[in-house]
Amino acid sequence: MKQTIPLQLRQSFTPAEYRDLYEMLLEAFIKKEWPDKGPAPGGKFSVWFKEGKKGYRVGELFQVGPEYFYDRYGRAKNGKSISLEERLVVAVLDYIDMNGRTITELLSNFYSSPNRPSRKTNAKTSAIAPTESAVQVSEWDDVIATVFHFYAAVDAGSAKHHEAWNCLTPRLQHSICESDFERFCEGYTNTVAIKNIKVFNVVKNANEAVECSVYYIDEIRNYRSKDLSGWDEYTVADLMEFVEKVRKVEASVAAAGGKGFEKLELYKLFEPAASEYIWYKCRIKPENIDKVFPTHKATEIKRLYRVTCKHIGGRWLIDTIRLLNVHSSR
């Protein structure tokens, strides 16, 4: 039977650990989201009903409802252990300013943090409560190191692109750019920085490969044109205008030496980095990008991938990088 890879691994906390996590999150949330007038009347629970741009702020930050953390806090106070999805643990620890590139490092810093309420010095005894948990060193440290090395090399720019290239298996090198190193480098023409890299959900699959989830913020030069904008406001009634704009983009791509525009997936044209996909897939040379997209704007895009690594020639190398689609539930 084929093994199912758990993409939503969970992290368990003892009652005291979760109470500390909640109280630190509550303090940070009030400081960051209620900086001027403090939380709304009604007690500490009302804090979580802070309105954001598109709903509750806690939902925008963590994709959970306003009662989520408080409800589990009540259970922890009643002596119940609490289990959270690892992606949520990473988001919370990052929000309360724990340092760490992996969930292992983040948790280790949380468990040993002197800011944990249960570890603060007792005014009468001057004693500090002992830490309750110890994080084990991951057996996949070499895998995690390879993943970090790849993205750090991309972030460092063209001088380090050969190091990123050497983190990939020959199969992946051929898959993404037909083993053409120059084209691989061109794919990062618009990359400004890769920030806040997190690696989590590390598991071994049935094929003796190791998988992990990778999240980071991709700061890019988002190339733009008037023919590739405003589509989010289109309706069915604007269908012919939409077709006309797509044809203009197609003509611009051809004039810049691009090929294969007609084979692009239509939905890609609606994505925030549509221009990036177009010039790369149509093989437009960097010096000709402005012929299709004359302006650009600095844009930050949150990326989430599932990365598979294989052990080849005594080294762990990246064999697949697969985009994970994140959907919010209503």
Rank of each mutant, 00 (worst) to 15 (best):
W165Y: 08
P15Y: 03
K54V: 08
A16M: 11
L168F: 08
P130H: 11
V192S: 05
Q11V: 13
V89Y: 00
G314S: 10
S81L: 11
I217P: 00
W34Q: 05
A254Q: 06
K37Q: 13
I278H: 03
I82A: 01
Y277G: 09
K77C: 13
R10W: 06
A16F: 12
A76D: 02
L228G: 00
A298L: 13
V154C: 05
E27I: 07
L228V: 07
L21R: 01
H149M: 14
S213V: 14
K263H: 15
D142F: 09
F49R: 10
V202A: 05
K245A: 08
E17G: 08
F49N: 08
L21M: 06
I176S: 07
F13V: 01
P170Y: 09
K310P: 00
N166H: 12
A123I: 12
K50E: 05
K44Y: 07
I197E: 03
A129Q: 04
N190L: 08
T4D: 15
R330P: 15
I194Q: 00
M1W: 11
K195P: 01
L106P: 00
E287N: 06
A156Y: 03
V90M: 03
K259G: 13
L304F: 15
V64T: 11
I194G: 00
G74R: 13
E27N: 14
W231N: 03
